[in-house]
Design a protein around this nucleic acid. Structure first.
Length: 282
DNA sequence: ATCCAGGAGCTTT
DNA sequence: AAAGCTCATGGA
């Protein structure tokens, strides 16, 4: 057993969340199943093991300040997910997805980490994205003891396009390097959470390598904008399947979702995405 | 070889 | 602004 479990507190929470759905629904790339019901991952500069318990989950290492100051928000444990899911269940087309994936939580990740991860996601698949991210962390992230933190903008700016490319990023290396320089020049990713969905999206779209889809991912998974509705190939397929009246283009689908689901659009999207991929895997 | 993966940018209407 | 065309990378 790793040494840090021997002298570090853990927190047990009485409410269940679906760890598999939450960590494998494509919103974050650094969580891995260590054993059945147990996930290990790194968020920002913190490592944790999250495990299913009889009545809920446990987080370790995690003391009270770490929970209140970070994990609670990161894991979305301050949200009323039961009520939101119940609201979405009222839509018949979503019933299978919501009931199958009940317990899915949308994370609230550090914005810079999420932004870089999703710049890397374009024309890419989850497995390879994870590989690129891990190599970036191993080479340019701070050593936090057996693990590596996600590298800050300063670190990736000095790594440069070549260093990022060497981690397997391909043509996306240029975009990440440029985003890092933007931060060095005063762009504050965390500030996006405070200026409203539309304004934040406008800012993100100024970045190279960030289109509508990537912007909405960042806005949903890290900035707390529940109305963001990222449309990728899976969600596009699911929407055309369950909501044929919604239209066909991503723009039409976003407009439909905004009208039908409002600030729950992002959650609806996540249920659809994960459910669609679960179906395919069977 | 062709297709696919959580697209984006540029050019043309 | 909206649609179409091109570009891009590694794996299956």
């Amino acid at each position: 057993m790793p040494y840090y479990l021997n002298h570090t507190a853990y927190i047990a929470l009485p409410f269940p969340i679906d760890l598999a759905a939450t960590f494998e629904c494509g919103q974050a790339f650094r969580w891995k199943m260590a054993s059945p019901g147990v996930y290990e991952g790194i968020a920002g500069e913190r490592f944790a093991r999250v495990a299913r318990t009889e009545s809920g989950i446990s987080i370790s290492p995690c003391d009270e300040p770490a929970y209140e100051g970070f994990w609670r928000g990161y894991l979305g444990l301050d949200g009323d997910w039961a009520a939101w899911s119940a609201e979405l269940m009222r839509c018949e087309a979503l019933t299978p997805a919501v009931s199958r994936c009940a317990g899915l939580r949308i994370l609230r990740q550090p914005v810079w980490e999420c932004l870089v991860s999703f710049i890397l996601s374009s024309n890419n698949n989850v497995k390879r994205i994870s590989g690129i991210v891990e190599r970036l962390c191993a080479r340019y992230g701070r050593d936090i003891g057996c693990r590596f933190a996600f590298p800050g903008a300063e670190s990736l700016a000095s790594a440069g396009e070549a260093g990022i490319r060497a981690c397997g990023a391909g043509y996306r290396a240029e975009f990440v390097a440029e985003a890092a320089r933007a931060v060095m020049n005063g762009f504050d990713p965390e500030a996006l959470s405070r200026i409203g969905y539309e304004a934040a999206k406008k800012e993100l779209l100024k970045l190279k390598g960030v289109g509508e889809k990537v912007a909405d991912c960042v806005l949903l998974y890290s900035c707390g904008y529940g109305e963001a509705f990222p449309v990728d190939v899976w969600v596009g397929r699911a929407m055309r399947n369950y909501f044929p009246e919604a239209g066909r283009t991503p723009k039409e689908l976003r407009a439909f979702a905004a009208k039908k689901f409002g600030k729950l659009a992002g959650l609806a999207q996540q249920y659809l995405f994960h459910y669609e991929r679960c179906l395919k895997d069977r």
